[in-house]
Simulated scan of single mutants.
Amino acid sequence: MGFPRGWIVWLAGLAWLAASSPALASYAVYTGRIGQSDITFVIESRNAVQRAVYFYDRYRTPIRLKPAFLHRTRDFGMDELDAAGLPVARLRFDNANFFRSTPRLTGNWIDYRSGKTLPLELELVAYLDYDGAWPAGHHPLLQAASSEGFYFQIPMDEDDAAVHAIEVMDKSSGKRWQTLELSQPGCNRGMETVQVVLERGVTQLRMAQTPHCPGMVFEWNPAEERFEDRLH
């Protein structure tokens, strides 16, 4: 016996959402300090796995952390990775609760090479999940990839499957340089939505193409000092 047409449409919608959107993902955005240095820290929780990226506000170059199962171990720590993907330091948290119920986090940062330890303090400034955004409104989700002069954000108000724009941010000032409006909504891949690729010496921003997600490519035009859509 076949499904009624309404059920077929509903099941197809669920299949598209599962393929295109991070399942049951939440994002917590913090500001705080490592030692005396101001930082911005973003952590994604999805299917019991935590992924995070942060930058020092002075430099605004995103630093990746190695994914971890923080809720399944008593060692609430994540390794900081260098450009080659090797662990160079560890961020350890006194509590692994990255939700609105815990607006302040403490811990420490430990340099693997020197053993130097600095206090870590974070204050929650935004929280986004499938129920909506706190506080209400749009919030920028920091991307893990960056270029020499820019870092990137995607505006979010909840854990949507659709991404409608990419914000190009100037590292030197922290101000928005350009907003790239997508001709078709792209799929939300969390902090890995935007990829940065050097193609024939030219910087490109890419969003991966899949059967359910349109691909996007923006290329840097040095004459205009702008990224331009290469597919439309």
Rank of each mutant, 00 (worst) to 15 (best):
G2D: 15
W7E: 15
I8H: 01
A12H: 10
A12G: 13
L14E: 11
L17K: 14
L24Y: 15
Y30V: 01
G32Q: 05
G32I: 00
G32E: 05
G35I: 02
Q36D: 15
I39N: 02
I39V: 15
T40E: 11
F41I: 04
F41M: 03
F41D: 06
V42K: 09
E44C: 10
S45M: 12
S45V: 07
S45Y: 03
S45C: 06
Q50G: 00
A52Q: 00
V53R: 01
Y56N: 07
D57L: 02
R58E: 10
T61E: 14
T61N: 08
P62H: 06
R64Y: 02
K66N: 06
K66D: 08
K66A: 10
L70W: 02
H71N: 11
H71R: 13
R74D: 13
R74K: 09
F76G: 01
G77W: 02
G77S: 09
G77A: 10
G85K: 02
R90V: 08
R92Y: 03
F93N: 03
F93V: 03
N97H: 11
S101P: 01
S101Y: 05
T102P: 02
R104D: 11
R104Y: 08
R104Q: 11
R113D: 08
G115K: 00
G115F: 09
K116E: 11
L118V: 01
P119K: 04
L120E: 09
E121I: 10
L128E: 07
A133G: 15
A136H: 11
H138P: 09
H138C: 08
H139P: 10
P140V: 07
L141W: 06
A144C: 07
A145K: 07
S146C: 08
E148T: 14
F150I: 01
F152D: 00
Q153W: 04
P155C: 02
M156S: 08
D159S: 13
D160T: 07
S172K: 12
S173L: 04
G174N: 06
W177E: 15
W177T: 12
T179S: 13
E181P: 04
C187V: 06
N188V: 13
M191V: 14
E192P: 03
E192F: 10
R206H: 02
A208G: 04
P211A: 06
H212A: 13
C213A: 03
W220F: 15
N221A: 11
R226D: 07
F227N: 03
E228I: 14
D229F: 09
D229S: 06
L231W: 08
